[in-house]
Amino acid sequence: MKTLKVILGIFLVTILFAFTSRGDKAPQKVKDAFAKKFPTAKKVKWEKENTTEWEAEFKMNKVEYSANFLEDGTWKETEHEIDENDIPQNVKAALASSFPGYEMEEAEISETQNGTVYEFEIEKDETEIEVAIDANGKVVKQEVKN
């Protein structure tokens, strides 16, 4: 029994090491593009987002950010959380009128090459929805989460 525990422990440590060590192996093109776009970023942690993208989590001006890049270094998106007070009034009004009775759980700004949107996680009873609203107050995405 003791031998089994030792083998299991070694196996778990190996798996943990494999998952944590591969996260910082972002391609040099990605790291270079990141450094050029965010020269003042601190505490950068890389993670493979999916088969074609890398995500960097970092701090800049005491704010936590995430940014996604393609394998060739192409920037895709930057996100950071914002306070409810920093959301434009027309965006708040669009959220309230489109989703009455929902409570805001989280708010972020998402910047892409196509522009800026405000992303929200909202909740009502057992229903959770991710919503994106553009700066003009138009709902551009909504997705019910399980």
Rank of each mutant, 00 (worst) to 15 (best):
L4C: 11
L8A: 13
I10R: 02
I10E: 07
F11T: 10
L12F: 05
I15G: 09
F17P: 03
F17E: 08
A18P: 01
A18Q: 13
A18Y: 08
F19T: 15
S21T: 14
R22V: 13
K25P: 00
A26T: 10
P27Y: 06
Q28W: 00
V30W: 03
A33T: 08
K36D: 06
A41I: 11
K43Y: 08
K48G: 10
E49C: 04
T51K: 15
E57D: 15
M60I: 09
V63F: 04
V63I: 15
Y65M: 09
A67R: 08
N68A: 11
N68I: 04
E71L: 12
W75C: 10
T78W: 01
T78P: 03
H80F: 11
I82R: 02
I82H: 02
P88Y: 03
V91D: 01
A93S: 14
A94T: 07
F99V: 05
P100K: 15
M104W: 00
E105C: 12
A107K: 03
S110Y: 01
S110A: 12
E111S: 11
E111K: 13
T112P: 07
G115D: 04
Y118A: 03
E119A: 06
E119S: 04
I122K: 01
K124A: 06
D125F: 10
E126M: 13
T127P: 01
T127V: 14
I129Y: 02
A132R: 09
A132F: 03
I133S: 06
D134M: 04
D134R: 07
K141I: 02
